[in-house]
Design a protein around this nucleic acid. Structure first.
Lengths: 182, 182
DNA sequence: GTCTATAACCCGATAGAC
DNA sequence: GTCTATCGGGTTATAGAC
């Protein structure tokens, strides 16, 4: 998980994994048919960890549903900040690294995105009548994800937090415009 | 350019390039010191092509500056549509594929993003007083780029246009909310 | 289950003839 | 300038001892 996040899937060799794990080839291939199955396991772990490893820490002490959206985005900001903007979202990185069909991999990437969007959609649902009644809360959640992923991409490229902050700032402006107009 | 867009940089071998170009190794290495220099040249070509190859066709018959923003986004939608959502923005793909520092590559990716944002910023500037006077037009342009890149990422992963359309729809909603409030 | 050694292959890059 | 042939090294995966 650590290696795929830092170097991507293709640039991580099996030898890298063996060294990082302090294990020899025989052990890995005893557990996994091949390298791709390690990735599948990693992606399953991300999915299983969304609630306990991502949302729970991000939302500690934050009960307001709208603020929870931005508290989650702040987690990604912290990841960028603490790595000098070298990595943000590992799912997004692998998603754009994937060029072959690879259905099992893509299905798990999609499941991760879906779970993320589900959680944020629920925040906007919980916001209730603070948003106009006809608000498409699912669409807002998708928009939050595209904003985060796009912001991470630009910040990683420019090696500065600016673009991420600008994108999230615009998202907040949009949500606040919606709320004002209720 | 074609290969890097379809398969990414790492997954494109020099042999692939030679075959696609109908050329032998000696010729390529006579012109380029190595594979990475081919990428640099490709990225320079993208930059040089932004106006004639991307903006000009997108904006043919579209003079309204706000509509030009969405006409450009429609080009990316077409790219997704005509490839069954297998690729969208080649610059974004390479940007997230890049994990080493690689300053010369990153500088060119950044230059491509900057040129894109510059062009869209100019659209929002040209929109003049249709937007509130204190509108941060640069921020709006960055937001348009993150929306496109995030939308492409999700649509590629899900292999459907939905997420791209939702993200762009939200961006349009935001711009229209701004215009209504003038 | 874990080890070491290695098979089989593909990679980027080079040498040297023409 | 372009060709063919190949070098040296890294890749995933496997074989077989323990």
């Amino acid at each position: 998980m650590r290696l795929f996040a830092r170097k991507g899937y293709g640039s991580t060799s099996v030898a890298d994994i063996l060294q990082e794990a302090g294990v020899n080839a025989g052990s890995l291939y005893y557990l996994y048919p091949g390298k791709q199955d390690v990735l599948l396991d990693v992606l399953d772990s991300y999915l299983a960890g969304i609630q306990p490893m991502l949302l729970a820490p991000a939302w500690e002490g934050v009960s307001d549903p709208i603020e929870r959206v931005f508290a989650l985005l702040r987690r990604y900001r912290s990841a960028l900040e603490s790595t000098d903007c070298t990595y943000g979202c590992p799912i997004g990185s692998i998603a754009l690294e994937l060029h072959e069909p690879d259905p099992p991999v893509r299905a798990r990437l999609a499941a991760n995105f879906d779970a993320w969007v589900d959680a944020i959609e629920q925040c906007f649902v919980d916001a209730g009548d603070r948003l106009p009644p006809n608000t498409d809360r699912r669409a807002l959640a998708v928009f939050a994800l595209t904003t985060m992923e796009g912001g991470v991409m630009l910040s990683r490229t420019h090696r500065r937090l600016d673009d991420f902050d600008v994108a999230v700032g615009m998202l907040r402006a949009h949500v606040e415009l919606l709320m004002v107009r209720t």
